[in-house]
Design a protein around this nucleic acid. Structure first.
Lengths: 118, 118
DNA sequence: CTAGGACCTGACGCTAACGTCAGGTGCAAA
DNA sequence: TTTGCACCTGACGTTAGCGTCAGGTCCTAG
């Protein structure tokens, strides 16, 4: 499929797709006229990137993890990278929980005052 | 305390502290010579900011939430803001879990292959 | 064959959260 | 009083992840 179709199906902009390719995250063949041609599997791949981006990974980091993603992470180094990334994610999740808890304190404190007023 | 001391105690750079003040997140008095003077409570405040930053909030967003933080969020709008922010956090946490799960699949798949080799 | 929408390659623009000078002042110790 | 480190105010630099022209080509329907 061409880039516009991939953009529609994966829900990102054409510009973003070209950027991903530039960063080495996506591959494509070219038509005789020089237009990009993507595999159908690129749709899932791009969606996966979105998930990783949402989780706070950078393009560079995703590119580093790509061999693990494509080959399944066979070497020890790749295993270690996946592990450390998962730990980093766990750390980030904990931070979010912390922030959420802090907000909860504010919310419930305010509710308490509202109740006092009654 | 002065800005360098605050930086040390809160673990952020002097530049960052000036930036926070510029964004309306921090207040300070000035000495006769024009140097910033901070309350001791600023240390916790800055650490709280770090927590919120880590959770993905922007300076602007934190500034919007400040009235809730300082007064405890009394008005309905403030309550609504805190609630919606907490929901946004929950959403982000879910995204992180999703990403973590995707990584797990890769890791365990690889382990499975390692076992096959045995 | 032609219109015109999709695509191409630069290349500059943008925002956030600071980093990093530069050039000058405050302040506390000796 | 003289160091000399801490602090001050600009103001430009940096990075990521695209957005957005500009100017030109491809492709396909009619």
């Amino acid at each position: 499929m061409r880039i516009g179709e991939l953009a529609r199906q994966s829900g990102v902009s054409v510009r973003a797709l070209r950027y991903y390719e530039e960063q080495g995250l996506l591959e494509s063949t070219r038509t005789a006229g020089g237009q990009r041609e993507f595999e159908n599997s690129a749709v899932d791949r791009v969606r996966f990137f979105q998930t990783l981006y949402a989780a706070g990974l950078s393009s560079r980091r995703i590119a580093e993890l790509l061999p693990c993603i494509d080959t399944g992470g066979t070497t020890k180094e790749q295993q270690a990278m996946l592990q450390s990334e998962r730990e980093a994610l766990a750390h980030r999740i904990a931070e979010l929980h912390e922030a959420s808890a802090r907000l909860d304190v504010l919310i419930t404190a305010s509710n308490a005052r509202s109740l006092e007023a009654v």
